[in-house]
């Protein structure tokens, strides 16, 4: 290997040298020739130079083959198959991630730990609700239970009381005194005062 002369940094021409290079000779016909070539390349139909169209009758002689009768049906079926295949391939791109064994183990452990609590403990209000609902149902049944004909609440009270109850329970002091005196003399005596409505009703019911 022989060592040649080392290139000097100032061997490369200076910018001024490049700028002072002489310009190439341009043919005086350059512009005309270029324009002529452009025009020649851009020749398109003009009234004076457009070639006449080929006769349509002659062109029609080069006729394409007719499509087979089942072309449309088979093409539609092919398009359908292609669409389905395309959908399948699109859907196949979505791959559901597989859970790791650790994830499965932790999930199972958590499920085992979480035993179902008894109903009473988990829902204390549910029992109260059930009791209230039952009581309401009983009251409703009593309220709407059909009573014997003619037997009203007032009648039931009168039947349950002694005949002079109205007198004895009356807030009037005279009625009370008379009632006490009469009862002492004759336990079966009727009161001497005008009986109230309840007493009259009771007497009417006696034989």
């Amino acid at each position: 290997m022989t060592a040649g002369p080392q290139p000097q940094a100032n061997d490369f021409p200076d910018e001024r040298d490049w700028l002072s290079l002489p310009a190439p000779e341009i043919s005086p016909r350059f512009v005309d020739e270029t324009v002529a070539r452009i025009l020649a390349d851009r020749r398109w139909p003009e009234p004076e130079n457009e070639p006449a169209s080929l006769p349509q009758a002659a062109l029609a002689a080069f006729a394409p083959p007719a499509a087979s009768p089942d072309f449309v049906a088979s093409t539609l079926a092919t398009v359908q198959r292609d669409r389905h295949a395309n959908w399948r391939s699109l859907l196949a791109r979505y791959v559901a991630p597989e859970p790791s064994p650790d994830f499965v183990r932790r999930t199972l452990r958590a499920l085992q730990r979480e035993q179902p609590a008894p109903v009473t403990a988990r829902h204390p209000l549910r029992l109260l609700t059930l009791a209230l609902t039952a009581a309401a149902a009983v009251l409703l049944a009593i309220a709407i239970w059909p009573t014997p004909r003619g037997r009203t609440l007032e009648g039931a009270l009168v039947a349950a009381l002694p005949a002079d109850a109205a007198m004895r329970l009356s807030p009037a002091p005279v009625a009370t005194l008379v009632s006490l005196t009469d009862t002492a003399n004759d336990p079966f005596a009727l009161p001497h005062v005008v009986p109230d409505r309840a007493a009259r009703w009771r007497q009417r019911g006696r034989p």
């Binding site: 390349d41 851009r42 020749r43 398109w44 139909p45 070639p51 080929l54 006769p55 009758a57």
Partner: peptide, 24 residues
């Protein structure tokens, strides 16, 4: 497009001239 069409017509007319003349 016009340029290509022009050239195509020219070429076809040249090549098909004998048959077109016979057909006419």
């Amino acid at each position: 497009v016009k340029s290509r069409l022009f050239r195509a017509k020219e070429a076809l007319r040249e090549r098909l001239e004998p048959w077109l003349r016979a057909g006419a």
